[in-house]
């Protein structure tokens, strides 16, 4: 549109709403950050403005890392997250490919059934699952979560990937198969590199959900040293009605760092489409 590039109109139409939105979204992080850095005596002091720091301390972080099991929780969370993400991603790639590419009897029914499974709330599913976990003797082991997280990760990830695989022209792998590739080679060397944005999206989705998951972690792996960050934070840093706000917020900060890093690294891949130029267009 003529004139719409003028600075003033861009300011009102673009930057101002963006700025407001950004402030709205980032405020909780800011709040977490300043509380985690405030000395205890100022935390509940109503006489000073709570929105900025007058004094600053790393005591809460020090306390969190040395006086609690936080490092162990972080390790537990990482093991479970990577395990569950890897398992879910592998299964979802294979399932998404099969559902997206092959026409077979019951294919559509299977696809719908998998999606319906996603709609069962974890708050119901954990009851039968706890029986399964107990019978297999997995209670309070990493496997308890690595095997149960895929129940909500695979349905979504495989649907996402199924849609992505369908956007990749079928001729590409047909051509590869005529060129001498087996179906698996065609998938591995042609389709998967092109589906990378989809795979990364599914990976980040799985990573984030596993990292933040609370209910299953509490029920299946909630005792002793085996806690994850969300469970450990709540069970050890809230003593009855006493909230240790400083360490709580420090734990929340440290806990959200890996997710933020995961997003930052892959955001370009996440957004970009790689299929340009494959076929005419």
């Amino acid at each position: 549109m003529v004139g719409s590039n003028r600075l003033s109109s861009r300011l009102v139409l673009l930057y101002l709403p963006l700025a407001l939105f950004t402030i709205f979204l980032l405020f909780p992080f800011y709040w977490m950050l300043i509380i985690s850095l405030k000395p205890n005596n100022l935390l509940l002091n109503m006489k000073i403005n709570p929105l900025y720091l007058t004094q600053f301390t790393l005591d809460h972080y020090r306390y969190l890392l040395s006086n609690t099991d936080f490092p162990r929780w972080a390790l537990n969370t990482a093991i479970v997250t990577f395990g569950a993400t890897f398992l879910s991603l592998t299964s979802s790639i294979l399932m998404g490919y099969a559902l997206g590419r092959f026409r077979f009897r019951g294919g559509n029914v299977a696809g719908t059934a998998i999606f319906l499974a996603y709609l069962i709330p974890p708050t119901l599913l954990f009851i039968p699952l706890s029986q399964v976990v107990a019978r297999f003797g997995l209670y309070n082991t990493y496997w308890a979560l690595i095997f149960t997280y895929p129940t909500f990760l695979i349905p979504f990830a495989s649907w996402l990937l199924m849609g992505y695989f369908r956007t990749i022209p079928r001729e590409l792998e047909e051509c590869a198969m005529i060129d001498g590739a087996s179906r698996f080679q065609a998938m591995w060397r042609i389709i998967l590199p092109l589906a990378l944005p989809g795979v990364l999206s599914a990976g980040i989705f799985s990573f984030t959900l596993s990292w933040n998951e609370f209910l299953y972690a509490l029920v299946f792996m909630g005792s002793g040293e085996m806690k994850t960050i969300p469970v450990g934070t709540v069970s050890d840093l809230i003593r009855a009605d006493l909230f240790q706000w400083g360490p709580l917020m420090a734990a929340a900060m440290l806990g959200s760092v890996p997710v933020a890093i995961a997003y930052m690294f892959f955001v370009d891949q996440y957004v970009s489409g790689l299929t340009a130029g494959a076929v005419k267009g």
């Binding site: 001729e171 590409l172 047909e174 051509c175 198969m177 590739a181 042609i190 590199p193 494959a278």
Partner: peptide, 20 residues
């Protein structure tokens, strides 16, 4: 016999070049 073992080559309408 699967396509890979037929010793043929095909040119597709949309070329099907591997974009990566």
């Amino acid at each position: 016999i699967p396509p890979k073992d037929r010793d043929i080559a095909m040119v597709f309408q949309n070329y099907a070049l591997y974009p990566h």
